[in-house]
Amino acid sequence: MRWIWIDKFLEFVPGKRAVAIKNVSLAEEHVHDCWEAFPTHPACLMIEGMAQTAGILVGQARNFREKVILAKVARAEFDDIVVPGDQVTFQAEIETLADEAASTRGTLLKNGKPFARVDLMFSHIDQNLSGVKFPEENFVFTGQFERLVAPLLEGADG
């Protein structure tokens, strides 16, 4: 199973904006590691959730031809914690999309209320200036990611 930290997309506007949600459950093992006496969904996994929401948005903008890799967490500010029973909403927007990279701006909501901001940069790694070669197969966008976004892309331009 792949490391997926969003449950589903609610909105997907190709090249512009995506919204995904995650429901945090006490049945998930990781919440008990952080911490046993007071289980929470850690901020690092919410950064990963935003990276997946925004990364799929960036990848789809070039029809999943590019290998999109998280290159920089430009901002990650959290004003609150998330515990089992909470729903996290990831709202991502593309700020800049260029041949070699993209930057995104993101807001996270806890049960509908904004509580965190995560801005990211992604690299299109085949376009790197040092000329390093990567495998031809797109190892970033495999079946699971595509299935996640497929229902929202039916009938959409892109």
Binding site: A71, K72, A74, E100, A101
Partner: peptide, 13 residues
């Protein structure tokens, strides 16, 4: 290295 691209994007904006 990635910061140089970030700086370029931000300056453009």
């Amino acid at each position: 290295s990635i910061d140089f691209l970030d700086i370029v994007f931000r300056l453009e904006k």
